[in-house]
């Protein structure tokens, strides 16, 4: 398609300067972080030569190991729960005739995107405290439930987009060929929806893995995910070990986001 030449943003004065400074601001800190994770010294600001030592030290640090395992457990459980809920929500908001208040339902599903995270965190803190007092349970489920809740909109978006892009005729054709609703879902809708589901689950996983605010408020004593552990470390001694952990997290996130992008781009076969 021919683009209008009347307004080409690249010809505006200062375009190159602004674009470059944005990229520098975005990426320079991250590049520095990655570079100093290989620092041989103990400083995060003075370069003393190349070394893998901080990766080794992070790998061998039991606290980091525990925090990583906890993060992975929570992210896995939360993304599973959130994705399941998101599939159901997406079906309910795309495969039913428009009902009164469907706009409100849509807003409510996406509530975590709009309400300040700190508010949700405080609310959950108070709510779970009451449950803790009543039941005495202090386990992992508070974190899993909290993470599931705020991950739902992230899983919901790609799934809903995929459902909306799907040919409704396919489901009608399946129903016409004697398929009952549940079997149509399993045999026709789900296989078509699969890339969306995977993309949603990945996004939810990354979001859960990354969360600090809500986790910090909800976690019981001694429970640390990787981000809250790192936050705790920053209050004490800062070594390039933090850089190393951050770099690994960055690598995982980038890998998942790239996978998400590829999946969400994949055409309907």
């Amino acid at each position: 398609m021919a683009k209008s030449r009347a307004f080409d943003v690249r010809r505006q004065s200062g375009f190159v300067f602004i674009a470059l400074s944005c990229f520098v601001l975005l990426y320079l800190p991250i590049i520095l972080l990655v570079v100093y994770s290989f620092n041989a010294g103990t400083s995060i600001a003075v370069w003393e030569g190349f070394s893998w030592q901080w990766y080794v030290s992070a790998w061998q640090n039991e606290k980091v190991q525990d925090a990583t395992i906890l993060s992975l457990i929570i992210a896995t459980c939360a993304s599973l729960v959130a994705t399941t809920a998101a599939v159901m929500a997406a079906l309910a908001t795309t495969r039913t005739t428009k009902f009164r208040g469907s706009g409100l339902v849509f807003a409510m599903i996406n509530q975590p995107l709009m309400i300040p995270e700190i508010v949700t965190a405080v609310a959950l803190l108070i709510f779970f405290a009451m449950i803790k007092v009543a039941t005495g349970y202090t386990g992992l489920w508070y974190l899993i439930i909290a993470h599931s809740a705020f991950c739902i909109p992230f899983a919901y978006m790609p799934i809903r987009a995929r459902l909306q892009g799907m040919d409704l005729n396919l489901e009608q054709a399946a129903a016409d060929l004697y398929g009952r609703p549940w079997r149509v879902f399993r045999r026709v809708t789900l296989p078509q929806l699969w890339p969306g589901v995977l993309a949603g689950a990945m996004l939810a996983f990354v979001i859960s893995l990354d969360d600090v605010v809500i986790t910090e408020f909800v976690k019981s004593a001694g429970q640390d995910t990787l981000p809250t552990y790192m936050l705790g470390q920053l209050r004490r001694v800062i070594t390039p070990e933090i850089n190393a952990i951050s770099t690994v997290l960055l690598a995982i996130s980038v890998a998942l986001v790239v996978a998400f992008y590829i999946l969400s781009q994949s055409k309907k076969q």
């Binding site: 040919d167 005729n169 396919l170 009608q172 054709a173 399946a174 129903a175 016409d176 060929l177 004697y178 398929g179 009952r180 045999r187 026709v188 296989p191 078509q192 309907k268 076969q269």
Partner: peptide, 27 residues
């Protein structure tokens, strides 16, 4: 629709893209 003794040939065919020709026919 799934309890009616009728079948439809859709305007855009609505073939299942994730199934083979034989699987479509046997659906």
């Amino acid at each position: 629709p799934y309890d009616r003794p009728v079948n439809t040939v859709f305007q855009n065919y609505a073939l299942f893209p994730h199934l083979t020709v034989a699987e479509n026919i046997g659906f």
